[in-house]
């Protein structure tokens, strides 16, 4: 029996695209309530790692366990069918770099779509929760608006609320602020910090060093598809073990707009 206080257990994940090895034998765990920030230069495999967790990318080797249950592979080593994989995916929320809201649905409908259509929960209950989530991200007045009419920061707050609407055990963030104008980054980070404080279990791929430094319980530093360093943010930022990490911290702490917020 696997340890179930671990929400996520990633064991020896590898992934290649053609000749390029994007991820090499990556393992890490995430305990309940943790905020793990995945850092690393562009092309280091961060997003691919995140996308392997819910099998948007199928890993070539290794296993992923969510609450002790293997993702993507059923008993006997058979790859899961669509239906079974969908069931697991509804326990994992995801926030996308380019928001990926459904353009034909209003803000409120975006939040209600997966809980009603996939999780088959009663509409009245879902609606009430969705309204509460919109209030939480400060967008109650936008509930009947279509996504196209929102600013980037508002879109991403809807994206976060949508990910919360399915009541996931784990929330994945794929560079949630990278597509935003600098002045809009803050409003999204505020929401993410609050979630971290409330004990939501999150894996966050980001270039926001400031956020990683204060909100992360642990930092994972990736380079060329390998975990080069892992540890507490204090240790990682003030006393990195490798030259690669030191260079990276120097570069990004100066550069990112929201770095010192």
């Amino acid at each position: 029996m696997r340890d179930v206080t671990k929400v996520l257990d990633v064991v020896g994940i590898s992934k290649r695209f053609g000749d390029l090895e994007v991820l090499h034998d990556i393992s890490f765990q995430v305990q309940k309530g943790e905020t793990v920030c995945v850092l690393g230069p562009s092309g280091s495999g961060k997003s691919t790692l995140l996308r392997c967790i819910n099998w948007l990318e199928r890993p070539d080797a290794g296993q992923i366990y969510l609450n002790g249950k293997e993702v993507g592979v059923s008993g006997g080593g058979v790859v899961m069918g669509d239906r079974e994989l969908s069931q697991i995916r509804t326990h994992i929320g995801m926030v996308f770099q380019h928001f990926a809201l459904w353009p034909h649905l209003t803000v409120l409908q975006n939040l209600m779509e997966a809980p009603i259509q996939v999780q088959k929960r009663p509409k009245a209950e879902v609606r009430e929760e969705a309204l509460a989530l919109l209030a939480k991200v400060g967008l109650s007045d936008k509930r009947d608006v279509f996504p196209a009419k929102l600013s980037g920061g508002q879109k991403q707050r809807v994206g976060i609320a949508r990910a919360l609407a399915t009541k996931p055990d784990l929330l994945l963030f794929d560079e949630p602020t990278s597509a935003l104008d600098p002045e809009l980054v803050g409003e999204v980070l505020v929401v993410m910090r609050e979630l971290a404080r409330e004990g939501m279990t999150m894996v966050v791929v980001t270039h926001e060093m400031g956020f990683a430094r204060e909100a992360a319980t642990r930092v994972l530093f990736l380079d060329h598809g390998r975990v080069v360093e892992t540890g507490s943010p204090e240790q990682f930022f003030s006393n990195p073990e490798t030259d690669r990490a030191r260079q990276f911290i120097q570069r990004y702490s100066g550069e990112t707009a929201g770095g010192r917020r």
């Binding site: 819910n54 948007l56 669509d82 239906r83 994989l85 969908s86 069931q87 995916r89 509804t90 994992i92 929320g93 995801m94 996308f96 380019h98 928001f99 990926a100 809201l101 459904w102 353009p103 034909h104 779509e113 997966a114 259509q117 996939v118 999780q119 949508r162 399915t166």
Partner: peptide
């Protein structure tokens, strides 16, 4: 691509993905 991918990530599959997420836009 991304909204469709979001549909997959949120547990939509095959027919429901097509009907609810791909087809309307």
């Amino acid at each position: 691509r991304e909204p469709i991918e979001a549909g997959v990530a949120f547990g939509f599959s095959s027919l429901s993905l097509f009907r609810r997420i791909v087809l309307p836009p």
